[in-house]
Amino acid sequence: MPKLPKLPAPPLPPPLREPPPRPGESNGKGGPIEEAKAAGINVVDWVDERTSLSGAGRWLMFRKVPKGTNWFYTLGSATMFAFLSQAVTGVFLAMYYRPDPAGGAYESIRYVTNDVFLGQFVRGMHKWGSSVMVILIFLHMGRTFFFGAYKYPRELNWVIGVVLLILTMTMSFTGYLLPFDQRAYWATIVGVNINGTGPLLGPYLSDFLRGGSEFGATTLSRFYAIHMLLVPGALAALIGAHLYLVAKLGTTAPPWQKAEKRSELREAEV
């Protein structure tokens, strides 16, 4: 098989660059120690030969971020980490949860909170993580708004962002019912009723959420399915699209950052 062309080396800063091999080491066939060292690289090479993923990896990791990028630009990825934390803690909660309005739901949450090892800790992380994620998503949106980052060519990324915002609020609304305590129950009844007062689609939306015209046995399982399958799936997919566009278009430079025209001539240096 012909050798695949070598991709150019990534522009790593000097301390991270691999030192050149010492004399006598790994020239051609080495001893078992060298082979063991090379095993990881060989596995990566094997996968890459069949997928060509390393090109995509380099495109993603070694693209340049414009001059002047500051800490405000970490708010988007901070939102993503909050989402990942919600996903992981949510999986652990789902291992115990039973969407049974007759008492099973409340019992299962009581069991997690009081009896399961670290149960209250994981539930607390999920509960407070939702507040943290909502705060971060608003901060991130504020950053892109005040920096004018929604303008050409990033309009589509803003639109996807608004859908992410709506989905995040839906997560928090549907999750609130699941513990099925007094607060969850009554707040959700009022919340669904509020939806019902909306023009045109309002009544249909609240009927859909309740699973009928009454708040009944199917309501809880419906909220559960929306909260842990429908919306998180859509969120994950749209976050993927959002990040793809970020990598493709690049993040904006801060609005007051000036391009130094003359340095065009020095492009060879970069």
Partner: peptide
């Protein structure tokens, strides 16, 4: 934008380090 981008630093490790620090704080 292309000038500003050319003058910037690579995403890895510079932006990744900041994002990582922020993730730890979160």
């Amino acid at each position: 934008y292309s000038i500003l981008k050319a003058q910037g630093k690579p995403f890895f490790p510079y932006a990744v380090a900041k994002d990582g620090a922020m993730a730890v704080v979160v």
